[in-house]
Write a protein that binds this DNA or RNA. Sequence first.
DNA 1: CTGTTAGCGCGTTCAG
DNA 2: CTGAACGCGCTAACAG
Lengths: 329, 329
Amino acid sequence: MVSIKDVARHAGVAISTVSKVLNHYPNVSEETKKKVNEAVEELNFLPNSVAAALSSKQAGRMALLVNLNTRTQAIDEIDMRYISGAINKAAELGLDVNTFFFSMFEGMSEEEAVRYLRSQSIYGIIIYGLSKNDEMLHGLLRSQTFKAVVVDAPIVNESTSSVSIDQEKAQYDVAKKTVMDNKCKSILYIAGKGNGYVTEERLSGIRRLAEEMDLELLVREGDFSERKAREITFQDARGKDVLVCASDLMAIGAMRALMEMDIFRPVCGFDGITLMGYAGKQMNTVRQGFAEISAAAVEELYYLMNGGEGRKKRLDYDIIRLQYLDIIC
Amino acid sequence: MVSIKDVARHAGVAISTVSKVLNHYPNVSEETKKKVNEAVEELNFLPNSVAAALSSKQAGRMALLVNLNTRTQAIDEIDMRYISGAINKAAELGLDVNTFFFSMFEGMSEEEAVRYLRSQSIYGIIIYGLSKNDEMLHGLLRSQTFKAVVVDAPIVNESTSSVSIDQEKAQYDVAKKTVMDNKCKSILYIAGKGNGYVTEERLSGIRRLAEEMDLELLVREGDFSERKAREITFQDARGKDVLVCASDLMAIGAMRALMEMDIFRPVCGFDGITLMGYAGKQMNTVRQGFAEISAAAVEELYYLMNGGEGRKKRLDYDIIRLQYLDIIC
DNA sequence: CTGTTAGCGCGTTCAG
DNA sequence: CTGAACGCGCTAACAG
């Protein structure tokens, strides 16, 4: 393995000079910079990220904390896109990523979790799927032990950023489109889990719409569960003109229930997952670019780890219609 | 951060002694072993895996190489289970895992790929979704630069193991069950991709069945594509009694095509993915435990990295029937 | 602007 | 059976 020492010798400079060039430090003359870069090229040198992490304690290693639910396939899809989006962006930025699942921290105290991550030289984390009652993680964020980015939860402090789309507006938009397309007067809204952050925001979006358009609104808690959405639909769909669901999975559950009830109601979802194509009918939904959101989270963490301050990032979304033939290949 | 040095001081022994105890070296007296372990407990010491990796070059860091296709959702499901299965098992064994996608190596020569992985102190790899024409990876395996485990491809040498279910038998079993349940005389077999390893094995399974039961067999290449299976079904399903597909995704494509054609034929799939529940009808399929397979792959790599020799591992599978209500939650 | 030096935390000879 | 000493590859003060 060719190391920084070889490069230094080859370029006729000191080891530390090579390090400075590699890490874009300011005080290096153009000339030596060129010499070093040439040596790097010629020797095909690639810095060892493990050694760098051990030495610097700063840059480099970050963890993805994923709230994985391996029982539901739609969740798989979303998490897979989160993970691949993050890994690809991290590779681009030359960062080391380790993936963890919430289940691996079950029963750990905040202290233990910190030790565990620190023992892997991790100094930055990205959290996916945080809910209000994940106390250990909230403690972690509050303590600011790590630079952190939280996806889909509005938590911000000096060392924590938040990344997501505008949930309120997206829910408003997709529901409005569905209502307008179908001239509805009343809505059954199947909301997410009570302890989820996006749940509230989406709820206020639908509330705003109902108010603005003077629509009757019935809100039921679907808990992001396909089965629960199905049950709610059996119970409450007859009396309403349109079903607005806070996730695609629930929209699919609702749609299938409607088919079994043999009645028609427009349904719209939220997320834009491929699974929607299998639902049997077309539906409006919000397409979130999960990979892009995750890539943005990595960039944001990179920014934080280089001294940036925590802040809130908003990303774009689309309102789309998915159908079976679009998604198969 | 509490380091091995602190433990040594606390236990009143030398640093190296602590290291030996931690790594289960033979020549340490029970007494000092106990002293050290007590100190570890009291200080809540967790060894730093990054430092260990840098120092030892042997154990520890491994890479998951995943052939991810982010366009198809069923693939997401499978890969997600592979990845989570591996990560969980690795955490259990105290190994460091990094995940990579084939796309990250596009355009890299074998040499470059080696450098890239080595620069991350990676000494073991697990490959998912290898096909016959991935030349760079085949070179890598042949060179034995890394300890390797290949999932679903029969590649074995001193430092390479292979892990999978018995594809031939599984295809035989699921098809036989389907044929028997429906008293069929002819089969349309929609095979996988020509360059995939499992394709051949599954094919010989169906061939054996056709021969044994004296069934007419038409084989078409579905390339593991849902769309292609759909087209093949439109073309060739009428003339056959049953459709046997080499993947669930193709089975879903076939089933939907049959529904559009408004004819009934029994269909069976292969994999046991949740998406099957959305197919509209029940089907027989082979349930592979992807997470378990992946966990076994990690264990196998651990074995190799500790001096074991490459070998072939076979895992179990089930023949099941999935339906919508089973998979939602 | 460049080079020297001292670690980061751990594994591993090699004396004793 | 134990411990001192060196090195893994790199970063970061600190001199010069």
